[in-house]
Structure formats: structure tokens, C-alpha cells
């Protein structure tokens, strides 16, 4: 299962790259770092850049459609410093993403139980100043989450998309230096890693009884017997029915992968023989 990470800035990415010992993979058109099943893209700032890089990552990585996808980054918080429980360095799993520009909201599916507290985030176009804090829902403020999420949700189910934010300021700090950003992210990495581990334990449900090996045999039969798309689907369902009703493995159909078919009728006849074998009547 690929783990895909979309991170806006190099200073945010650096501690992650170090922790997971990622290496730059120059075969990508964007800065992408990877090792084994972990891939990290440095997306650039803003929701558009984040969306583009996220879509790119999901579609370029092999089996990207099976991935778990995370955005990790720093964020401001609407609460005034010292006037509530939230402090710089606190980290949150996002449960609601509001896009200031469109007024739309998005909701990652929270099936995995993680060590993180939760918060809403509002994605803004331009950094929000303290004076405008009341114009958005109380909570986190960032510039990427809405773009990231919409791009991810075009490919993945919502329970495999997560967004983790580390509070960097209370909308008062004009500019953070790189080291501070790196330290904030580094401080959140234990929780982040545990969060990813939790997401990995959640399966999609309704698991297919066809194993990869079954699928390969069905594929071979399809090309050998020149089955139409609908026959191919039917064959897959016949094998599922056989396995589910008998509780046994798929019967040996290898002899059908060796037959030679000259006409459509011959293909049909072989298909009927397979159907007989798989019949659970």
C-alpha cells in the first residue's frame, strides 16, 4: 500500500525526509522523494499547486489508487495566543476543510483512531491577518488543504485521505524562519507516524474473494477464449459465486488456458463448459 505525502514547503518536508530516509527520485517532474512504499512530493504553496502536485503523485505512483494520502504542514490558528488551550506546536487531524474562496466544505472520513486531536481548517487564498480572524470558522488556517483534498478525493475514498496540521502561529507572526518550521514538523512526527499506521489498519471492506492469482487466471481465460467484456465480468462473478458458496478455492481451469479458439462459437462452447464446472446450483 503506497503512502503518499503532499507537503507544501521544503522546510516542512526536510524532517519527514530525514525520518523516513527518503531519497529524491529524479524521474518525476516535481520534487519527489521516496523510499520503498513512501513517496513525498513538495507541492509548493497554495491550494492550486497542492492540488496539481497531489493529483500528479496519485496518478504517477504505481497502485496510487490503493494509496493512503496525507497532507502535512504548519497552520495558523484563530485562537489568540494564551487565550485558549491551543498552543504553537499542537497538532491536529483535520475533520473539516472549508475553502474560503468558494465557501465549500469537505470532510475526510475518520475511520482510523489516531493519537491526534481534531480540528477544522479553513484554506485561504492569502495569509489571514489577526484582524480578519473572525471572518472564518474558529480553528486552523492554511493555504493548501482544500486543494489537496479535492485532488485526492477525485481518486481515493475519503477514509484514505488525511490532513495533519501543526500550529505555527496565532495569525500574528509575520514570517517564520526555516528552522522553526522544521522543528515544529519534527516535533509532530511521532504522532504522524502513528496516524499513518492507524490508517493502514483500516481496510476498504467488502473484500474481494478473488485473489490476485484468481484474477490472473481469469485474465488468461479471457484472452485465450476471446471473451467479451460482459462475459469476462460474468466469469469473474461465476468464480466468486463458486468460492463463496462452496468455501473452496477456484477449481483448476488451466486446461482452458491451453485451448485454441478459431471461431466465436468455439469460445462460447468453452465458456459454457467452464460455467458448468463453476455451477453451484
Amino acid at each position: 500500500m503506497p503512502i503518499l505525502l503532499a507537503v507544501a514547503l521544503h522546510p516542512e518536508a526536510r524532517p519527514v525526509i530525514e525520518r523516513f530516509r527518503l531519497k529524491q527520485d529524479a524521474s518525476f517532474a516535481l520534487p519527489v522523494f521516496r523510499r520503498d512504499e513512501v513517496w513525498l512530493a513538495v507541492t509548493g504553496t497554495g491550494r492550486m499547486k497542492s492540488a496539481i502536485a497531489t493529483a500528479y503523485l496519485v496518478t504517477q505512483v504505481e497502485k496510487g489508487e490503493n494509496a493512503i494520502l496525507f497532507n502535512l504542514g504548519i497552520a495558523g490558528h484563530t485562537q489568540k495566543a494564551g487565550e485558549g488551550p491551543v498552543e504553537v506546536g499542537d497538532r491536529f487531524l483535520v475533520n473539516k476543510i472549508s475553502e474560503q474562496g468558494t465557501g465549500r466544505s469537505f470532510y475526510p472520513d475518520l475511520l482510523a483512531r489516531t493519537p491526534l486531536a481534531e480540528s477544522a481548517v479553513t484554506t485561504v487564498e492569502r495569509p489571514l491577518v489577526r484582524a480578519d480572524a473572525d471572518s472564518v470558522e474558529p480553528g486552523l488556517i492554511d493555504m493548501e488543504a482544500a486543494g489537496f483534498y479535492q485532488a485526492g478525493a477525485a481518486f481515493l475514498p475519503p477514509h484514505r485521505i488525511g490532513c495533519v496540521k501543526v500550529v505555527s502561529d496565532h495569525l500574528e507572526t509575520p514570517r517564520l524562519d526555516k528552522n522553526t518550521v522544521g522543528e515544529l514538523i519534527a516535533g509532530a512526527l511521532d504522532d504522524f507516524e502513528e496516524t499513518i499506521a492507524a490508517y493502514r489498519t483500516v481496510s476498504d471492506g467488502g473484500r474481494d474473494v478473488l485473489t490476485d492469482a484468481d484474477v490472473r487466471i481469469v485474465e488468461r481465460l479471457r484472452s485465450r477464449l476471446r471473451l467479451t467484456a460482459s462475459r469476462h465480468r460474468m466469469l469473474s462473478d461465476l468464480v466468486r459465486a463458486y468460492k463463496l458458496h462452496t468455501g473452496s478455492d477456484m477449481p483448476d481451469l488451466s486446461k482452458f488456458t491451453r485451448v485454441t479458439i478459431k471461431t466465436k462459437q468455439e469460445g462460447d462452447a468453452q465458456f459454457e463448459r467452464i460455467r458448468d464446472i463453476l455451477s453451484v446450483g
Partner: peptide, 11 residues
């Protein structure tokens, strides 16, 4: 939401 997994959510 698109692409929700019914059985995953059932748990």
C-alpha cells in the same frame, strides 16, 4: 461524498 466505502464505514 464520492467513493465512500460502505462496508468500511459500517465498522
Amino acid at each position: 461524498r464520492p467513493r465512500q466505502q460502505f462496508q468500511a464505514q459500517k465498522e
